[in-house]
Amino acid sequence: MALLEVNDLSIELSDRQGTYRIVDGLSLDIAPGESFCLIGESGSGKSVTALSLTRLLPSPPFSYAGGEVRIDNQDVFGLDDRTLRRLRGGKVSYIFQDPVAYLNPVHRVGTQILEMLKLHRPEKANQERIVELLKLVEIPAPELRLKDYPHQMSGGMLQRVMIAIALASEPLLLVADEPTTALDVTVQEQILRLLEKLRRQLGMAVLLISHNLGVVHDFADRVAVMYAGQVVEYGKATEVLNAPQHPYTEALLEAAPRIGSGQHRLQAIPGQVPPPHSFPSGCRFHTRCNLTEPSCSISVPPLHPAGDGRMVRCPIRVPS
């Protein structure tokens, strides 16, 4: 049975000008221990989706406009505040892009891990467990480093501390929102390998959010590609990335310069990612698509199954 199930989730954002649907009819499921990736460019709705899983979005300006989120067979929208607080950082932990912004600069990193243990695993709130967690995230000399303040550590080390804090509650699902985007490439590689090792060792599921197709390629079992608030393609990572069916996935893969391909003109996608207040009618990608037909601007195409768990939102590529 799935650990996380999202069914037809829609999220709206309101401002003075109006209300926009920034996540539209999103469904996905993650099995225990699985690594799942949400791919998308800025503004595609991937981070909002991640935060909505434990109702972390402030309302207003955000509001839930329908759908259901179930974690470990609990309906997240039906939970009372107390249970919800235990879920956040408990069964579901988060790490984010910028560890510096999420650590308290005036407390030692050991204290910040202890805080999490006290909250979610009070029986283990002791020094040994802190050292164990720092060892788990491969911080050298953990007995000494737990006395460090955040400013004494490098970006890569801080992200490891963030992961240690996230692991303190022994979560079933770790949501990693662009965890390596701010890091240098050699450190990024170390953090990704660490996440992969922890996933296997601890058996927790990981939901990775990234715009970097290479990261996704190395990490994910299954992926969902988002564009302008909608999933446009969904399926096994190797299949989606090696044989994309939606024109957006295809164009995105073509647009990224690849190492070893020498000097050539890149296949850019024309135009810009549309902002929420001007999502095009019909298929939201039709204004930038090279396959577009007159019908594309009229009705929103549904996600259509394309075999083997694959879903594609394009009536031209996958006719219903």
Binding site: S154, Q188, V215
Partner: peptide
Amino acid sequence: ASIPGNRTEADENWSGSRGDI
């Protein structure tokens, strides 16, 4: 070798990048 997506089968036993700058 650290570029994501660049890892091939042959590199699977690559010991990886080490340490911080």
